[in-house]
Design a protein around this nucleic acid. Structure first.
Lengths: 327, 327
DNA sequence: CTGTTAGCGCATTCAA
DNA sequence: TTGAATGCGCTAACAG
């Protein structure tokens, strides 16, 4: 069903059809009606590809890939990206890693100008999968050409949090780490967060437990396990806020006083952390900064017509939000 | 930067460039290298529009419009839509209503085959804005041609919840309603939820407060206001779970026993409702059903080549999740 | 006001 | 193995 069919049906030229469909001038009302009716009768709809091919106004598209839309951390980034993208005239396409085959990435790459997101696959492989498309990595900073990054400088925040906990009397530090690597690599590997945490606490480390899932219930289970294995822990860093919410809940179920017996800290700065009891102390990540810097990079790339340019790197920081869960 | 530039740079014809770029056969390794190098040097990237125009493999795209990505209700739907879309080979583009001009919808419509979402604008206007694109309304059921819908049948759930509250001794019912209409229409108009609720509670209505925002803090403020104005209320329906989270928090701050003095119920069924204390009773909406039924409709429309077909309507139900906040 | 001409950038025929 | 044609569906620039 093309523009020519409509033109034939209405007995006009295809240019007239274009005029009618796009509310343009230089067309009489009766003709427009006739064309529109014909189009409607035939169920005609202009091909968005042909249209975008011929109109030189390039609408850039950005593909967002995140682990899961079940984690507010990612959807917050998506929200910020969304409003920023709308302002800058970008289109946003999304894809999630969970429960989706790898060909989904191929499909996505065929529709966008740049891919930004959190990836767990090796970067060389990633670069290949994207078919040479520029990539903005929100997870780690790389040196591969064509792979840019927005990096979260979390280490100072963790150091600051540990210091604040010490000031309040914490001496036995513990952590619940995420088991991402278990799924992607097949074997557990300590996350950078754990490494920074262990460095910060030094010999005051009571123990670490690796969670199966980075969800509320995953955090709840891991926290309970942590208390069983290391009952002397008096301060716990949860890998992220979602898991920290589970920890707070778990503590309540177990009758463990927070922050009296054990202090809990999360990472991310989710809004919902303020709504639980006790409110969650958290190392808040500047998600808005991530979104805007990712868009900055995207615009630089667009400026260069998405040619391969030297890797661009940006950094965002954290902010310690001290609330009742850490005393 | 087109395929011809690369062909010239590499000293080959443009078909050879196509062969190299797409990993096709019938091209010698050295030639491929030369072409790839030239492409890289020039920063060439195939136009996704031209490619999609010429390859007959139609990748359908669905545009999702929601009020806000700050509300997990919407992101849950997006998550379900995302996985379903990936399975069925659909692409997902997103746009949020909040803080975005109306031209964002136009932009979106230019890139997709069907628009699905929650709209607050009048439907005739909506239909116009989408330029004749088929619309799947997730909010209300309409009769306009080209506007299909997935409708949440909430009334029975509200009736059931009120009945269960009565069984447990509740006699003074109150509600916090959302003020959506204040923003879109300029004046407040009771939502259907409120109307169903009032019908269900009959003369046991203690009072209703309209919240400024459908957020956690908006719910917290409105709930506090409700208790001040109607201190005798013993059961409160919050417009949605996000606001209900605020109510639970607010009750805690005010030292009001939940469910002892007042029972709280939300609507949506957010996962985080289980993580607060007391866990939130909620009328859970089948969000997964919404997503899959929306995709069903989209596929029917695709089958008809997105011609205007008779409005398709689907319905999803609710499930009462009884937890401690309602006793 | 309407129709004709000429591309947009690419992949899919063919022929060499 | 490569190159020359042809057309995807549409809009922009002209012409009538």
């Amino acid at each position: 069903m093309t523009i020519l069919d409509v033109a034939a049906e209405a007995g006009v030229s295809r240019q007239t059809v274009t005029r009618a469909m796009n509310d343009m001038n230089d067309i009489s009302a009766p003709t427009r009606r006739r064309v529109l009716d014909a189009a409607d009768r035939l169920g005609y709809r202009p091909s968005r590809f042909a249209r975008n091919l011929v109109t030189r106004t390039k609408t850039n598209a950005l593909g967002l890939v995140v682990s899961s839309f079940r984690n507010p951390y990612y959807t917050d980034i998506a929200a910020d990206l969304l409003s920023g993208a709308a302002e800058r005239g970008w289109q946003l396409l999304m894809s999630a890693d969970d429960g989706v085959g790898p060909d989904a990435l191929d499909k996505l790459c065929a529709q966008v100008d740049v891919v930004v997101g959190h990836f767990h696959a090796p970067e060389a492989e990633l670069r290949e999968a994207c078919g040479g498309l520029p990539v903005v990595n929100l997870e780690t900073v790389s040196t591969l050409p064509g792979v840019h990054s927005v990096h979260v400088d979390l280490e100072p925040g963790i150091g600051e949090a540990v210091g604040a906990l010490r000031e309040r009397g914490a001496r036995r530090f513990a952590m619940v780490d995420a088991g991402y690597s278990l799924q992607s690599l097949g074997a557990y590997e300590p996350t950078p967060r754990r490494q920074w945490f262990e460095r910060a606490v030094g010999d005051q480390l009571a123990g670490v437990v690796v969670a199966d899932e980075d969800t509320i219930s995953g955090g709840a289970h891991a926290f309970a396990e942590l208390l069983r294995r290391h009952p002397d822990a008096d301060a716990v860093l949860m890998f992220n806020d979602l898991m920290a919410l589970g920890a707070v809940q778990s503590a309540h179920v177990l009758g463990v006083d927070v922050p009296g017996r054990v202090r809990i800290i999360g990472v991310d700065g989710l809004a919902v952390g303020e709504a639980v009891n006790p409110p969650l102390t958290t190392i808040s990540i500047d998600r808005q900064g991530i979104a805007s810097k990712a868009l900055d990079i995207a615009e630089i790339l667009a400026e260069a017509d998405f040619a391969t340019v030297a890797p661009i790197h940006r950094t965002v920081g954290t902010q310690l939000l001290w609330r009742a869960s850490a005393g």
